[in-house]
C-alpha cells in the first residue's frame, strides 16, 4: 500500500470489505533496528513503511481487528476491537516485565524510559501512597474500565508516567508515586532511547492519523445520511467547509510520514525530529477531527454507541502512550536548542 493515497482511494479502502489478513507467523527478529545500531529492539522483519501502512489500515477498519495476526499482537501488542486497545512499546525489558507480571500476579510492573535509560520496576500494589489514595478502589476501577483495555496484558511506558498492569486492567500515574519493591535499571544509550521513542511515536502517530481519516469518513457518511431542515446535513455550507478544512489538513500527513521514513535511512537526528513532529501533528489532527465528529453527530456523540467513540476512547490511550503532542514538540524544541548550543560552541 502506498502511504500517499487519494481521498477517493481512502474512501474506497474504508468501504471495501476488510482484508482477509492472514500472514505467516513472522519469526521474532530484531533486524530492522539492529541494522541501525540500536541493539536488540523487538521488531519483526517489516519495512517501516509497511508497518505504518498496516497500522493506518487497521485504524481505518481495513484490517479485521479480532483476526489480527499473532505477530502483531505479540510484538506490538496492537489491536483494535470493540474500542479495546492493547499496547506494547518496543522498549527493552518490556516482554520480560510482561512475563513477570503474568507469572506473579501480585506484582504490577512499571516501566519508565528517559534519556538515561530504561527502568523496570515491579511494585506491590495495595499500599498506595497518600497522593494516590483518592485514586484507589472503585474510582481506579471505573477509570480502568473506561479505558477499555484488554485485561491483564498491558504495560505502557510514556515518559514520566508509569503504567500498572493489574488483573482488572490498567491505570497510569506519575512514577514518583510508585513504591518500588525491586528495581532494575538498564543502561542504554540515550540517543537510542530517543530514537526508539520517536519510532514508537511514529507508529502510534500512524494509528492516530488513521483514526483521523476513519473519523472523517464516518462523519462524511453521517452528513450524507442525517437530515435536518429537510435536507442532508452535507448540504449545509458550514458542514461542508468544516469537512473540507479537515481534509485539507489531513492531505499532507502522508508526505510527512514518508519524509520521516526517508530520514530514517539517512541518520538519527533528522529522523527523530521528523518522526516526533509528524506524530505530534497526527495527534493534533486526530483530536481536531474527533471534535468535529462530535459536532456533526450532535447529541448522539454523547451516547455510548456513537460510532467514532471507539476512536475517541482510543486516542485517549494512544496519545499518552506515544508521548502526547505537547511532549513530542517539547522534545523537538529541546533538540533544536541543543543544536543551537553546539553551533555556538563551534563558533567559539
Amino acid at each position: 500500500m502506498q502511504l500517499g493515497m487519494t481521498w477517493e482511494a481512502m474512501i474506497e479502502t474504508a468501504l471495501a470489505p476488510p482484508l482477509d489478513f492472514t500472514l505467516p507467523e513472522v519469526p521474532f527478529s530484531s533486524t530492522w533496528l539492529a541494522e541501525q545500531g540500536l541493539g536488540a529492539w523487538w521488531f519483526p522483519d517489516f519495512a517501516p513503511e509497511e508497518l505504518i501502512a498496516r497500522l493506518w489500515a487497521s485504524a481505518v477498519g481495513r484490517l479485521p481487528a479480532p483476526g489480527l495476526p499473532g505477530w502483531l499482537r505479540e510484538w506490538y501488542g496492537w489491536s483494535v476491537s470493540l474500542g479495546r486497545a492493547l499496547v506494547w512499546l518496543p522498549l527493552p525489558g518490556t516482554a520480560a516485565a510482561g512475563e513477570l507480571a503474568r507469572s506473579q500476579p501480585a506484582l504490577v510492573t512499571v516501566l519508565g524510559g528517559d534519556a538515561e535509560g530504561v527502568s523496570r520496576v515491579p511494585v506491590a500494589w495495595g499500599r498506595p501512597s497518600p497522593k494516590l489514595a483518592g485514586m484507589a478502589g472503585p474510582v481506579l476501577a471505573s477509570k480502568v474500565s473506561r479505558l477499555c483495555l484488554w485485561e491483564g496484558e498491558t504495560v505502557i511506558v510514556p515518559q514520566g508516567l508509569g503504567a500498572v498492569e493489574r488483573k482488572e486492567g490498567l491505570a497510569m500515574f506519575p512514577l514518583d508515586y510508585v513504591e518500588p519493591v525491586d528495581f532494575q535499571r538498564y543502561a542504554v544509550d540515550g540517543r537510542a532511547v530517543a530514537r526508539a521513542r520517536a519510532t514508537g511515536a511514529l507508529l502510534w502517530g500512524a494509528w492516530l492519523w488513521g483514526a483521523a481519516v476513519a473519523g472523517l469518513l464516518l462523519a462524511r457518511r453521517r452528513l450524507l445520511e442525517r437530515h435536518q431542515f429537510g435536507r442532508p446535513l452535507a448540504r449545509f455550507q458550514a458542514t461542508r467547509h468544516q469537512m473540507v478544512d479537515l481534509a485539507v489538513a489531513l492531505e499532507p500527513q502522508a508526505d510527512l510520514f514518508e519524509a520521516a521514513l526517508r530520514a530514517y535511512q539517512e541518520g538519527p537526528e533528522d529522523f527523530i525530529q521528523r518522526a516526533n513532529l509528524a506524530a505530534a501533528r497526527a495527534m493534533r489532527l486526530s483530536h481536531q477531527v474527533l471534535k468535529a465528529c462530535a459536532l456533526f453527530w450532535g447529541g448522539y456523540s454523547f451516547l455510548q454507541d456513537y460510532p467514532p467513540s471507539r476512536y475517541t476512547l482510543a486516542t485517549r490511550i494512544f496519545e499518552p502512550v506515544a508521548g502526547e503532542a505537547h511532549d513530542l514538540e517539547e522534545e523537538a524544541i529541546g533538540t533544536l536548542s541543543r543544536s543551537e548550543g553546539k553551533a555556538g560552541e563551534s563558533q567559539l
Binding site: 483518592g134 510514556p158 497510569m172 500515574f173 486516542t315 485517549r316 490511550i317 496519545e319 502526547e324
Partner: peptide, 16 residues
C-alpha cells in the same frame, strides 16, 4: 489537555 496531557491530566496537581 495540552498542558497536562490526556491521561496524566493534572496529575501534577491532585488526583481529584
Amino acid at each position: 489537555r495540552d498542558r497536562f496531557g490526556l491521561m496524566g491530566f493534572a496529575f501534577n496537581r491532585s488526583p481529584e
